[in-house]
Amino acid sequence: MLKIGPYEFSSRLLLGTGKYPSLDVQKEAVEASGAEILTFAVRRMNIFSPEQPNFLEQLDLSKYKLLPNTAGAKTAEEAVRIARLAKASGLCDMIKVEVIGCDKTLLPDPIETLKAAEMLLEEGFIVLPYTSDDVVLAKRLEELGCHAIMPGASPIGSGQGIINPLNLSFIIEQANVPVIVDAGIGGPADAALAMELGADGVLLNTAVSGAADPVKMAKAMKLAVEAGRLGYEAGRIPKKRYASASSPMEGMSVV
């Protein structure tokens, strides 16, 4: 089970809800992914066209926990404002703290992220900060009381997979709260690797929504996360430099 604050989840795949080709595809993909936590963004409503379909309104909210993000925030104060708006919906108390510090790489601002996390923890939020793969920052966020740490595998939406597995494994080894690898996952192998490294979960969006067949990819990611987790729990063999025969050397029949 994945435990985040007071909540427990059987799925270790967290799914983003942005940029799907259609609402129908999105619904099917969410279903196929088996995800129980879905991320959302908070944006201005188009008040002049209230009939516009909204994915959230079509969702069975008893089946999913919402994880709104603070995307768009560049300062701790902006992130806190978005988080408060999200919580005022009455639908959620978890928040993905996302404070971007660089428009080109979309890498998080570590100082503002830390500040925002501290303020939101004080207000009683369940705080999941999106961070870079900085080992010390992850430690500091945990010490503040964050309920999970979400280091990026590589830049958001880049699909480059895990570019620093060493740092990620350091973060995982030292953490006493769940580590969820967030952002940069490209294919199922990346998700499986994150889980094999010992991550407690994987959060992805574009890898599914941008796939040629999002529904099939959602299922692939579900299986990859499960396979990676099983592999981690099973304990993989250490790597050796030379071969070691699987078949016995004794009892060879020789003519």
């Binding site: 809800t17 799907y20 963004a41 409503m45 994915f55 993000n69």
Partner: peptide, 29 residues
Amino acid sequence: VRIIQKHEYGTTALCDGDRVEIVHFVGGG
């Protein structure tokens, strides 16, 4: 810049020039 809780909707008066934000959840990662 003050969030209005749902139970305050009926009692929160609006004045000329007020800055109102109406937001909702949209798809995001």
